[in-house]
Nucleic acid binder design. Structure first.
Lengths: 257, 257
DNA sequence: ATGAAGGTTGCAGAGATTGCAACACTCCAG
DNA sequence: CTGGAGTGTTGCAATCTCTGCAACCTTCAT
């Protein structure tokens, strides 16, 4: 909508791939070097871009700090965190919290497993959207039309033999998840890792976030993990209740109105 | 340098404070509503801004994902991580890695203490720059002129009675740190928490990052923590060596040139 | 020294951006 | 049901900003 800003912002994902010098940026944006320079300067002034000693540009520290603040402002995260910790204390496995936003599902919180074998994941990292239990729950709650459109746009990488292979299969899975009110991922992302997931709902019943417990086969079998389902659902419901204001929150700072 | 981009980027920190509606954004930017709308739209298209259900805007998920990539591309982080983990296995305490950039010091990696008592800190969070051991090391390495200017600009919050009180004291401390080649923070940020820190240097000898081990009094006394200094320094040196290419890296993917 | 490669600046023309005003929409009160 | 306030949205013309160019500067390697 705004050409200049559009160009400037296009620089960010470009630099996310790795540092680049002025010429490379200009070329990829298809603009004159001087134009690229001025855009980079503006980004630099705002701290979103940093110029390293070899004069190449990369993403700057303020970006990281901004993202940090963005996450802390997601109040679902604040409310959920203590519940996640408690769940982790009870079962010992890795607990994740994720939200959906504009065609992406992101982990926004994580409590690490107490077992030595941990799975790889990181807060802020986009989730494997076609297989993760939390992703299924979040997408299953979208209006049907939107769900169909999105399912068509997605790629269906076969991480393992049990990955969701294509859009129709995915839509069927979402329908199932929608009805049963919980989801699993049994080795669909990594052969040896399973997870059980449950939805967190706002006051209007819409799914605002999803949480999951994950563990590798070597620690517990899929069946054993499934026995945790009631606990996971209870935790999710507790968070839902607090989030939608049904439970008097133990102690919280006053909102500014 | 570029008015349009400048305005657009100014929206980000504004939204970092909390969600805002179109009118509020326009007012704070001192532009017409329609202008603010178009800037917000552009930010939205790039996913940096999200429109929540009540039509207010807040920072978007792509921002978080971008920051994630930014951090993963800091190769010092990649190189250092296994060393930090090993150090944590040896001593059991919380290990931090931090870098300096444009008047800020940021934690870019962290390995949690294995003890139940943990300190609060988060990757991406700006460090308490006047007291943290890692901050002292990073600032101590700046050219003297720059150090003086920066020291003057800083605030000196008295987190505790042992916090650095003012610029002259800070500069003296930096001088000391510079000479001894390591730093501590003994209760300067939180009364009961101490830390020992060591610098990581590039091939040219400049300090590119700093790492620290932190632990609360209730777990180990300050004196006990200090006995870890040689270990911390050895770890930092190992990272320095690998970072500046003196050590043949065990295995690494090919750079694209 | 010399040349090449990349970064930086002033300038005039082109074109994008701006603010305005009118319009759409939602919500609430009468 | 109707009217009105509060917001968000769009078309348009004037203008001010941004763009690309070309010349200049700096750094580095030969």
């Amino acid at each position: 909508m705004s050409q200049t800003v559009d160009r400037a912002l296009s620089i960010l994902p470009l630099l996310a791939e790795g540092p680049a010098d002025l010429g490379q940026v200009a070329e990829r944006l298809d603009v004159h070097k001087s134009t690229a320079l001025r855009l980079l300067r503006t980004l630099h002034e705002h701290g979103l871009v940093y110029r390293q000693s070899d004069q190449r540009y990369r993403l700057g520290a303020r970006l990281i700090a901004l993202a940090q603040e963005a996450m802390e402002n997601l109040d679902i995260r604040e409310i959920a965190h203590p519940h996640l910790v408690r769940l982790n204390e009870q079962c010992g496995h890795t607990v994740h919290l994720a939200v959906y936003e504009e065609n992406e599902v992101l982990y926004i919180d994580k409590v690490e497993s107490r077992y030595p074998v941990r799975m790889y994941s990181r807060i802020g990292k986009p989730v494997a959207i076609t297989v993760a239990g939390v992703a299924k729950l979040l997408l299953a709650d979208l209006p049907e039309a939107e769900r169909r459109v999105l399912a068509d746009k997605l790629d269906y990488p076969m991480y393992t033999a049990r990955s969701t292979p294509n859009a129709p299969a995915f839509l069927r899975e979402l329908e199932k998840v929608r009805e049963q009110g919980w989801a699993t991922d049994l080795g669909g992302h990594e052969e040896s890792i399973n997870c059980v997931a449950a939805p967190i709902r706002g006051a209007d019943g819409r799914v605002v976030a999803a949480m999951s417990v994950s563990a590798p086969n070597v620690v517990v079998t899929a069946d054993e993990l499934l026995t945790l389902l009631p606990l996971v659902r209870r935790t999710a419901d507790a968070i839902s209740g607090e989030y939608s204001g049904r439970t008097p929150v133990p102690s919280s700072k006053d909102p500014h109105d």
